[in-house]
Design a protein around this nucleic acid. Sequence first.
DNA 1: TCTGGCACTCGGCCCGGGTGAGTGCCAGGA
DNA 2: TCCTGGCACTCACCCGGGCCGAGTGCCAGA
Lengths: 338, 338
Amino acid sequence: MLSERRLEVLRAIVQDYVGTEEPVGSKALTERHQLGVSPATVRNDMAALEEEGFIAQPHTSAGRIPTDKGYRLFVDKLAGVKPLSSPERRAIQNFLDGAVDLDDVVGRTVRLLAQLTRQVAVVQYPSLTRSTVRHVELLALAPARLMLVLITDTGRVEQRLIDCQTPFAETSLADLRARLNSRVVGRRFTDVPQLVQDLPESFEQDDRGTVSTVLSVLLETLVEETEERLMIGGTANLTRFGHDFPLTIRPVLEALEEHVVMLKLLGEAKDSGMTVRIGHENAHEGLTSTSVVTVGYGSGDEAVAKLGVVGPTRMDYPGTMGAVRAVARYVGQILAES
Amino acid sequence: MLSERRLEVLRAIVQDYVGTEEPVGSKALTERHQLGVSPATVRNDMAALEEEGFIAQPHTSAGRIPTDKGYRLFVDKLAGVKPLSSPERRAIQNFLDGAVDLDDVVGRTVRLLAQLTRQVAVVQYPSLTRSTVRHVELLALAPARLMLVLITDTGRVEQRLIDCQTPFAETSLADLRARLNSRVVGRRFTDVPQLVQDLPESFEQDDRGTVSTVLSVLLETLVEETEERLMIGGTANLTRFGHDFPLTIRPVLEALEEHVVMLKLLGEAKDSGMTVRIGHENAHEGLTSTSVVTVGYGSGDEAVAKLGVVGPTRMDYPGTMGAVRAVARYVGQILAES
DNA sequence: TCTGGCACTCGGCCCGGGTGAGTGCCAGGA
DNA sequence: TCCTGGCACTCACCCGGGCCGAGTGCCAGA
């Protein structure tokens, strides 16, 4: 295994490279860090680190830069999570407290995270799958035209139009509304199908068709809307990516716009705790030169969605992880209050 | 005024420059276009065009490139709007027909427009100001907690939580709901304040406070949500912008993320017909090297919102204008159907 | 008014030398 | 055994000079 000092050298290399964005050499290292040994010794350590694949040289006679494997070791063994300063915490709280509805909460979170980390922020809307029903509303827009409105405990609202074959009496509508709500309010979305299964039978012959239609639209909505939504911001920070722009940035922008891709990415992360995926650890090929830091957040103990940032592999991991974790906590609090 | 031929030369310069992205010289021009004159003559014309500020030289002994003023003349006098091919039209219609709700319509429109023009697409959600009310719903979530849901004729839904000081009987709630709807359904949002002004007076003393609260939240929602929303896509196309990346692209990304800025931009455009703002004609300084093509769209005769694209000043104006106009028409149709 | 000719300009490219950061290796010392 | 100073070597980068060619402006003649 690598000696203590070699790990220390790796840490120093990562820190310097993240700071300067330039390959770091042995002399510069000994000058900037108190390693207690000479450049020559560091060179030997570097040779060993390179042998093991933790660092690499862009070309002969250049300094070293960390590889994905090197960052991985750094994140796992060498880096802590840097807590935010109190002013930063206060700023977060103040900023999030001003939110008026769910869209606003998510929007503010994205902006906050992007600004704090100076990277691209990704925030998933609270998932319907893990949410519960706050209310189901049925409105008659016209004699044979209904609107279904679904409200979740996280404040999300979904609506659907329903065209019925036959008109539906206002009293029956009120009846259906009441029965539907008494069954599903407070229940999880995943349980709804079972809970409403036998509902049509309890209605009169004439209304059964319409009731079935309404239920099928409701179930459809549940399935469709289980596809999660997300919001992305801070893409301007991509310009701080590196020198060789167009080629690096383009696939990243494309991946970010494909929400399906991003959702898959979030889905692959652990449900609880922080996940860091570095460079080629990301399956999507547009993101192989980026690192993704994600964490779950929720209104209670349980995570209802995830948020995170996408940045260059040469990012400030401790700082980023600290910011991501802190933001997730505060968003959780805000959601719990509303 | 400029002679016919000089205009022709300008047109040729714009076309070639847009195609090649390189300064165009007199010889190349005569070779690629049937101008019927020699390079020397063209040089004289170019000198005149430069004198008038329509074209410029990046440096001595280089070809000419159009200035903003040159593009302006091109768009106003020389360029038509290129209609789309029938396959393209069919593709648009097919793609948009699959949309299930308003979010989906807007989302698909953005993607479509971005793909068609290979530029950044901006689509504004149908405006509340110019919309009419389809339905107002009031739900009792708890004895002293209501939810207000506002549904527009374009399918947009807004909701707000209301905390009341005193509980509100279900019958009063139904009463309020009915009276509210009978007054505002089918009316324009801007007319709502007047229409509900005297509503509290018609209620019993006990309920007046709550009714007032509800109304004030309703009016607040109208004001707040008159701030329009928009969706943006195709930012990956920014990478095709030019050679000198980071500096060009960064302010554009920043402007695009500031929805307020973009909304202002759309607001400055004409309500009907197509608007093209070229380079420095855009007030926001992040966008002075871009051109913005916008057009209003709506479910009926009247425009309810705008959409458009943001691209480099050296864009294919006829093609872009054709695509923007066509998409706007089809979106209008889709909205009218729903 | 257009044309061909001509001299001129200047950015881009290639080449070659100098510079310096950084390396690998080795022999000597703790 | 491990660390250190010394040394030769490599190679990216910078800089200046020279060549090339596209493109220009001007002018005299048709």
